[in-house]
Design a protein around this nucleic acid. Sequence first.
DNA 1: CGCCCCGTTGAAATGAGTCAAGCCTTGTGG
DNA 2: CCACAAGGCTTGACTCATTTCAACGGGGCG
Lengths: 253, 253
Amino acid sequence: MVLDRHPFLQRLSQHVELAANDIAKLESIIEREISVRRKHELVVAGSEYRKLCFVKDGNAVRYQMLRNGKRHILDVILPGDVIGVPNSFYERAAYPVIAVNSLTISVCRLDDYLELCYQRPQFAFALCWLALQEATTHAERVIGHSRRTPVEQLSHFILEVHARLRSVGLAKEETFALPFSQEIIADLLGLSTPHLNRVMQQLKSQELVAGGDGQLKILDRETLKSIAHYDPPELLPIPLAKAGLPSKQVAIL
Amino acid sequence: MVLDRHPFLQRLSQHVELAANDIAKLESIIEREISVRRKHELVVAGSEYRKLCFVKDGNAVRYQMLRNGKRHILDVILPGDVIGVPNSFYERAAYPVIAVNSLTISVCRLDDYLELCYQRPQFAFALCWLALQEATTHAERVIGHSRRTPVEQLSHFILEVHARLRSVGLAKEETFALPFSQEIIADLLGLSTPHLNRVMQQLKSQELVAGGDGQLKILDRETLKSIAHYDPPELLPIPLAKAGLPSKQVAIL
DNA sequence: CGCCCCGTTGAAATGAGTCAAGCCTTGTGG
DNA sequence: CCACAAGGCTTGACTCATTTCAACGGGGCG
């Protein structure tokens, strides 16, 4: 099975109950599974991009270059995320995506997915829910940048990544692999690398987190949460079709 | 007609062609049209909120309070926007919404809308597209906060609001009513009011914009665009159902 | 072995926040 | 009809967090 235990399905299943033939339908439009090497650009800015890539393993970042040579990272991409939201929905891709380590993705054509949505609206909802999560992640990031202190931001980032990894079974209770360099985190949080480094040391010296070498351990989750204002909102489950509909219509759901 | 020339429909029609009976369907789930007075909270943080409100006229802001007493504004809400995205999709509303001047909205129940989506998937797509726009707006805001200078940010904000107002026919070529106080704009952009004020003056002294008294005129759009890195990505049109589907299915699209 | 990437540290410059005060306009109530 | 209050805008001075620039150490990889 192409999608067996795929982290994307793990993530979806938290919001909606998928029937076996839903999964089969989704599988049928997966074109192929490919690997991408570190530092390879999956999505080139300004190109037409019309794929959805369900990340099976590995990490990437979505970013934007600014005139002054600065890079800003919009989002880190973890297993279970979808590359192509939102890029594939624009005439031309707005935000390039680059792999930060070797990446395995399952690829389908956007058109095929959208057609599937007409056949089974729950896939349209899945897309909505992804977009809503995306919007919320960004919203939290916005708040972080403008109204949280660097310590608060970093705390928030750590908790967020941990939660996202946990939700696809890639993090232990309090320990996880943080696959991003300080430069990447700095570019994500809008800090300079030296400053991020100092902030990181601060968290460690206060014994809130420990780690190094790509591993991070959360020592004092409660304090960290309160520092970060971390209180992630929970999405409703995706609604199911009303039972009372005429059978003809139920059939195509 | 309840929704006749409703700015929300104007906005939607840029992405999808709506048949008369689609509009009728949407109208049928509108519960009522209500007015909200300035400074009134439409959505209370932490409450369960299960409505979608299509803004017909007036303005609001979605914000969040932080522990330290600071307010951060996530987004300004203009006619044509939908209040309840994303709040209504969470167990409890995450971001309160408050009217900044008198507001007229058309309200429907979220459940009714979602059910409509199962009947006519293009409404699910409409929701996706809204969420994607939301995500993109926030993404640009994120970039603004962390990697744009205040001048760049303000320029971007001016161009963004102008474009959003134009798309619902509420702005002239280069002039529009800016219904937000400097305090609100500062809280949105993550600046202090005094600083925003100085930045505003800078833009005026460079003869990029002019105005006052709630009116703003863009004098030099090109320079402003280049300062702001303003290059908004364009969403694809919402796909229509494949022609080849059985007629029963086409009928319900 | 040497290169490159990543993390770390230091010192100096500056942009933006904070606090505080004053002005102008608008709206309101006496 | 006037006076006062409130909200929004403007200005100035001071402070300090963060950036910038520069340099160094270690470790992994070719």
